[in-house]
């Protein structure tokens, strides 16, 4: 260890992993349906993609977690985003690629990706 910059590099690298271990209640919650139906439809790669992307972009008040079946099994994998004000957006038929766009547009820039939502899909 020769400089503070070196120390900081280690800190930044390790921080994301440790930050997950705090209750982030005030922030945005991202819920991935991980019941049998969700897993069968491919929810796990979606979940992994979301976690990786959130960590890469260092979004500290976003919590990505799993949830059970919400009853619309035909639309799985389902991802729900609950904003700090309580607004809920339901994204359906998700894939890992779509997940990246949700992170970029919705979580970072606060623009709902309309074409992935359940409303758009049902029309």
């Amino acid at each position: 260890m020769k400089s503070l910059a070196e120390l900081k590099a280690i800190r930044d690298r390790a921080k994301a992993a440790v930050n997950v271990r705090e209750n982030s209640e005030a922030g945005t919650r991202v819920l991935v349906g991980m019941a049998t139906c969700g897993i069968a439809a491919g929810a796990r790669p979606v979940l992994t993609a979301l976690v990786d992307e959130v960590a890469k972009r260092q979004l500290p008040d976003v919590m990505v977690t799993q949830t059970g079946c919400i009853g619309i099994c035909q639309y799985e994998p389902v991802v729900e985003v609950v904003d700090p004000d309580g607004t809920k957006t339901t994204y359906v038929k998700m894939t890992a690629e779509k997940a990246l766009r949700v992170v970029n547009d919705h979580l970072v820039n606060h623009n709902v990706v309309k074409e992935y939502t359940i409303g758009a899909y049902q029309q």
Binding site: M1, S3, L4, L7, I10, R11, R13, A14, K15, A17, V18, N19, R21
Partner: peptide, 25 residues
């Protein structure tokens, strides 16, 4: 109960060795 005590990086992640580093540098 927060970090893994056997991994130094986790201590550094929570500002570990920052005090020593600042004093020395």
């Amino acid at each position: 109960g927060v970090i893994n005590p056997e991994v130094i990086d986790e201590y550094i992640a929570l500002d570990g060795y920052q005090a020593l580093g600042t004093i020395l540098t």
